[in-house]
Amino acid sequence: MEQEKINHCDTIIFIYPVFWTEAPAKLVGWFDRVWTYGFAYGNRSMKKLDKAYVICIAGRSLSHLQEHGHLQSMKSVMLEDRIFDRAKSKELIVLDSMTKFNEEVRRLNWDKHLHTVYQLGQSL
Protein backbone atom coordinates (compact mmCIF):
# COMPACT_ATOMS: atom_id res chain seq x y z
CA MET A 1 0.00 0.00 0.00
CA GLU A 2 2.75 2.51 0.94
CA GLN A 3 4.76 1.50 -2.11
CA GLU A 4 1.73 2.11 -4.35
CA LYS A 5 1.31 5.58 -2.84
CA ILE A 6 4.94 6.40 -3.55
CA ASN A 7 4.65 5.25 -7.16
CA HIS A 8 1.63 7.56 -7.61
CA CYS A 9 3.40 10.72 -6.46
CA ASP A 10 6.07 13.00 -7.85
CA THR A 11 7.30 14.47 -4.56
CA ILE A 12 7.79 13.00 -1.11
CA ILE A 13 8.31 15.00 2.07
CA PHE A 14 9.52 13.61 5.37
CA ILE A 15 8.85 15.83 8.40
CA TYR A 16 10.14 14.85 11.82
CA PRO A 17 11.82 16.01 15.03
CA VAL A 18 15.50 15.19 15.31
CA PHE A 19 16.48 12.62 17.95
CA TRP A 20 20.26 12.37 18.40
CA THR A 21 20.76 13.54 14.77
CA GLU A 22 18.43 10.78 13.55
CA ALA A 23 14.81 10.38 12.56
CA PRO A 24 12.41 8.88 15.10
CA ALA A 25 12.41 5.08 15.30
CA LYS A 26 8.98 4.84 13.64
CA LEU A 27 10.28 6.61 10.54
CA VAL A 28 13.44 4.51 10.47
CA GLY A 29 11.21 1.43 10.72
CA TRP A 30 9.06 2.77 7.89
CA PHE A 31 12.12 2.86 5.65
CA ASP A 32 12.96 -0.72 6.70
CA ARG A 33 9.45 -1.96 5.85
CA VAL A 34 8.65 0.13 2.77
CA TRP A 35 11.93 0.73 0.93
CA THR A 36 12.57 -2.95 0.48
CA TYR A 37 14.67 -5.01 -1.90
CA GLY A 38 12.87 -5.18 -5.23
CA PHE A 39 11.13 -1.87 -4.59
CA ALA A 40 13.64 0.80 -3.54
CA TYR A 41 16.84 -1.05 -4.40
CA GLY A 42 18.02 -4.11 -6.25
CA ASN A 43 15.78 -4.76 -9.25
CA ARG A 44 13.62 -1.71 -8.47
CA SER A 45 9.94 -1.21 -9.12
CA MET A 46 9.97 2.21 -7.40
CA LYS A 47 9.63 5.12 -9.76
CA LYS A 48 12.23 7.88 -9.61
CA LEU A 49 10.60 10.81 -7.83
CA ASP A 50 10.99 14.35 -9.08
CA LYS A 51 11.68 15.78 -5.62
CA ALA A 52 12.36 14.59 -2.09
CA TYR A 53 12.40 16.91 0.90
CA VAL A 54 13.47 16.14 4.43
CA ILE A 55 12.23 18.73 6.92
CA CYS A 56 13.49 18.18 10.42
CA ILE A 57 12.95 20.16 13.58
CA ALA A 58 16.06 20.48 15.74
CA GLY A 59 16.54 21.91 19.19
CA ARG A 60 20.13 22.93 18.48
CA SER A 61 21.16 25.82 16.27
CA LEU A 62 22.27 25.21 12.71
CA SER A 63 25.73 26.56 13.57
CA HIS A 64 26.04 24.04 16.42
CA LEU A 65 24.97 21.18 14.13
CA GLN A 66 27.52 22.27 11.52
CA GLU A 67 30.34 22.87 13.99
CA HIS A 68 30.05 19.39 15.49
CA GLY A 69 29.53 17.55 12.19
CA HIS A 70 25.94 16.59 12.99
CA LEU A 71 24.45 18.37 9.99
CA GLN A 72 26.70 16.45 7.62
CA SER A 73 25.76 13.20 9.36
CA MET A 74 22.06 14.00 8.98
CA LYS A 75 22.52 14.79 5.29
CA SER A 76 24.56 11.65 4.75
CA VAL A 77 21.96 9.33 6.29
CA MET A 78 18.80 10.92 4.89
CA LEU A 79 19.92 12.28 1.53
CA GLU A 80 22.78 10.03 0.49
CA ASP A 81 21.62 6.73 2.02
CA ARG A 82 17.83 6.76 2.27
CA ILE A 83 16.94 9.06 -0.63
CA PHE A 84 20.10 8.27 -2.63
CA ASP A 85 19.20 8.35 -6.35
CA ARG A 86 15.50 7.71 -5.78
CA ALA A 87 14.68 11.37 -6.55
CA LYS A 88 15.92 13.76 -9.21
CA SER A 89 16.40 16.49 -6.61
CA LYS A 90 16.63 16.26 -2.84
CA GLU A 91 17.00 18.73 -0.02
CA LEU A 92 17.37 18.70 3.75
CA ILE A 93 15.71 21.63 5.50
CA VAL A 94 16.51 22.08 9.18
CA LEU A 95 14.15 24.15 11.31
CA ASP A 96 16.72 24.84 13.99
CA SER A 97 16.75 26.28 17.51
CA MET A 98 13.29 25.01 18.32
CA THR A 99 14.18 23.79 21.78
CA LYS A 100 11.53 23.79 24.48
CA PHE A 101 14.18 24.94 26.94
CA ASN A 102 14.57 28.44 25.47
CA GLU A 103 11.19 29.97 24.67
CA GLU A 104 12.70 33.28 23.51
CA VAL A 105 14.95 31.65 20.91
CA ARG A 106 12.13 29.40 19.72
CA ARG A 107 9.78 32.37 19.36
CA LEU A 108 12.39 34.31 17.35
CA ASN A 109 12.81 31.40 14.91
CA TRP A 110 9.13 30.54 14.57
CA ASP A 111 8.28 33.13 11.90
CA LYS A 112 11.48 32.44 9.96
CA HIS A 113 10.73 28.71 9.85
CA LEU A 114 7.07 29.27 9.01
CA HIS A 115 8.15 31.41 6.07
CA THR A 116 10.62 28.72 4.91
CA VAL A 117 7.96 26.01 4.90
CA TYR A 118 5.41 28.31 3.28
CA GLN A 119 7.85 29.12 0.46
CA LEU A 120 8.48 25.41 -0.04
CA GLY A 121 4.75 24.79 -0.30
CA GLN A 122 4.42 27.54 -2.89
CA SER A 123 7.09 25.93 -5.04
CA LEU A 124 5.38 22.53 -5.18
Rank of each mutant, 00 (worst) to 15 (best):
M1F: 05
E2W: 01
E2C: 07
Q3S: 10
K5A: 06
N7R: 11
C9S: 04
C9Y: 08
C9L: 09
D10I: 07
I12C: 11
I13Q: 01
F14K: 02
P17S: 11
V18Q: 00
E22G: 02
A23N: 00
V28R: 11
W30N: 11
F31Q: 07
D32I: 09
R33E: 08
T36C: 15
Y37M: 11
G38P: 03
G38T: 10
F39H: 12
N43K: 06
N43R: 11
S45I: 09
M46H: 12
K48Q: 06
L49S: 09
L49C: 11
L49H: 11
A52M: 03
A52L: 07
V54L: 13
V54W: 06
I55G: 04
I57Y: 13
A58L: 02
R60S: 01
S63F: 06
S63E: 12
H68D: 05
H68F: 01
G69E: 04
L71W: 00
L71K: 02
Q72L: 01
S73H: 07
M74Q: 02
K75A: 07
S76E: 13
S76V: 10
S76I: 07
S76K: 08
L79D: 06
E80C: 08
D81G: 10
R82K: 08
I83F: 00
D85V: 09
A87E: 09
A87P: 02
A87V: 13
A87W: 14
S89T: 06
K90F: 12
E91Y: 13
L92N: 08
V94R: 02
M98W: 11
T99F: 11
K100Y: 14
N102M: 04
N102A: 15
E104W: 05
V105K: 08
V105Y: 05
R106D: 07
R107H: 15
L108E: 08
K112S: 11
H113S: 14
H113C: 13
H115P: 02
T116W: 04
V117F: 06
V117G: 10
